[in-house]
Design a protein around this nucleic acid. Structure first.
Lengths: 330, 330
DNA sequence: CGCGTTTACGTCGTTCGTAACGATA
DNA sequence: TATCGTTACGAACGACGTAAACGCG
């Protein structure tokens, strides 16, 4: 058994059992992978894959077991290499972030450009997706960190560090009836309106639906999008009332009217999620600190090794956070 | 980085930094280890060991980190090999048990000889020690399983399976004053006597001391031994009153008088402790089932993967257990 | 007939063991 | 001087890549 064999093994699995494709991913030739796989199976004494003719049809049950162990081993090998790279003060590498569209578009850019300024040789990969995809990509090992938002408890996976809190806003065109109400905005007002919001608000566990349900109301969601920019476009088109994250409101949206929803919908927290027991490169720690300045580097490293949940310094709100960012960089 | 290099690395650490000794343990030559270590350090770019002259003086801080990861990787490699060996129905291998003297001497022999009958090619290694040593040997990876007794909660480490419950007995010579009491034996009676018991009873957290303390008494322990046989010898010599595990009473001890202490001292449970997330060889599962017949094989494998504590079938008492053993083998 | 896998083969790199050397206590 | 680690060298093994053959859709 060799680390190379295991690397080839998971590469084949990750290439959906296409050895040729896998060989390109690991920068080797296809016969090399075939042969190493054969040797590994010979050494272990059983088939890792089910063959149909000459091609691989599926992974054996025992193969699945081996695959899990092999992944762990390769992860640990990567950790060892990270320890080494950190000690050598290597300033190049990759940073793979799995996150939602909103974070990628409105929250992450400053931190990423600050990182790029400090570490020009680090290549950043952003992988947008739904909450499920994001966590899956973290677990699979593709992503170094995930950035994800929740109204309630932190995501159950890995180590979750709170980055900032935020609220939602109601977005309407100027001169929309909702802008001229004499009393404060209520959920009942919104229940009568066609709503345009994120895809996630269709899920039964969405905090939007729940907020309405606890008042005995039900929202009329006429359109959803994964993308705040799309929501704005349809609000401009008069399709309905937008419900979106306050981070998504830009100066260029002055043609629209945004109303506070702090008292209507529960506050959300954006979390940075990491795999437990993983060695992070120095620039990843720096990035996290840039993105969530209230987290000291030692807070992060401690959280990664400690099994018990920690008590965090107070988590800033999005509105305070921007100020803090500016003052910190000044 | 190679698995062989990592294997050499931990071998050197386990041989207390003596490369020559380590080379014998891994069945290789000493220059081979030296060279591989050098290559590994070159690849990682930093020293894993602190050198004094040509010899290794200590492990670098970073080296410790690498060592931990390397051990994990080698453990996983061993797990993969175990999966393979199980699938091939290999009937040879090793079973390393870390346990206390009492278990090794009085509880384990039947199960071990039954195992040897079924798997003549499996070599069993018993490593007696104190509770701390036993758990350390399990964690270090030397032992496949630990067998250990506790009066209260299960050991905090790994996965603990309850094997059986047992009580202590008071052992005195015939015609000792305690044998002719009209009323039931009490702790107060024992407090007036010189006691001979296990070494562990000297520890402040020992259940013996605690039992006395809750009644405001304090035991006079005149002698301790790690070994039940030694305790018996000194009871015979009239040094004092023995307090020991009921398993230690053999038919050949008919020259002594043993008194129930069920109502005086709390019941103990003997636990089988395993490392979590470890693949066990088939014969290890068989052994556990032989030693704790109330545990089905699936109970064991489930407990190894499940993170949550499980509810066990009723745990037999030592006295019932022997009967069950006999009836099962009949 | 294209795609993917296997087999065959030659070259290269690497590892291993033996043996000699060096340093240290 | 005995013990332990490093260096040197030759032999053998193993891995890799190129090229060709085989199956399958």
């Amino acid at each position: 058994m060799t680390l190379i064999q295991l690397r080839y093994l998971v590469a084949i699995a990750d290439a959906s059992l296409n050895i040729t494709l896998a060989s390109q991913h690991v920068h080797a030739t296809q016969p090399g992978l075939s042969k190493q796989l054969k040797k590994l199976e010979e050494e272990l004494g059983f088939q890792l894959f089910v063959r149909r003719g000459k091609s691989l049809a599926s992974i054996t049950h025992a193969g699945q077991q081996v695959m899990r162990r092999a992944r762990k081993m390769l992860d640990e090998a990567a950790n060892i290499r990270s320890i080494a790279a950190n000690l050598r003060n290597e300033d190049q590498g990759e940073l793979r972030i799995a996150t939602t569209h909103t974070q990628a578009r409105f929250a992450l850019p400053e931190a990423i450009s600050a990182l790029n300024l400090q570490y020009p040789l680090v290549r950043v990969h952003l992988q947008p997706g739904g909450d499920r995809d994001v966590l899956a990509q973290l677990e699979s090992g593709w992503a170094d960190l995930a950035v994800i938002s929740r109204a309630g408890a932190p995501p159950p996976l890995g180590v979750a560090l709170p980055a900032y809190r935020w609220n939602r806003v109601i977005l309407v065109p100027h001169q929309h009836p909702l802008t001229s109400r004499s009393h404060a905005l209520s959920l009942a007002d919104l229940a009568g309106q066609p709503l345009v919001s994120y895809e996630s608000s269709l899920k039964p566990e969405s905090s939007l639906r729940r907020a309405f349900e606890t008042e005995g109301l039900s929202p009329q969601i006429v359109m959803t999008a994964s993308d705040a920019d799309l929501i704005k476009i349809y609000v401009r088109a008069g399709l309905g009332v937008g419900v979106l994250a306050e981070m998504a409101i830009l100066p260029s949206d002055a043609d629209l009217h945004s109303l506070d929803a702090d008292h209507l919908l529960p506050q959300c927290t954006t979390w940075i999620v990491l795999r437990r027991e993983t060695i992070l490169r120095e620039y990843v720690l720096d990035f996290i600190h840039k993105f969530a300045p209230h987290l000291a580097r030692q807070d992060i490293t401690r959280a990664l090794t400690e099994p018990s949940p920690r008590y965090w310094p107070p988590v800033p709100h999005w509105r305070e956070r921007n100020l803090a960012d500016i003052s910190a960089s000044a």
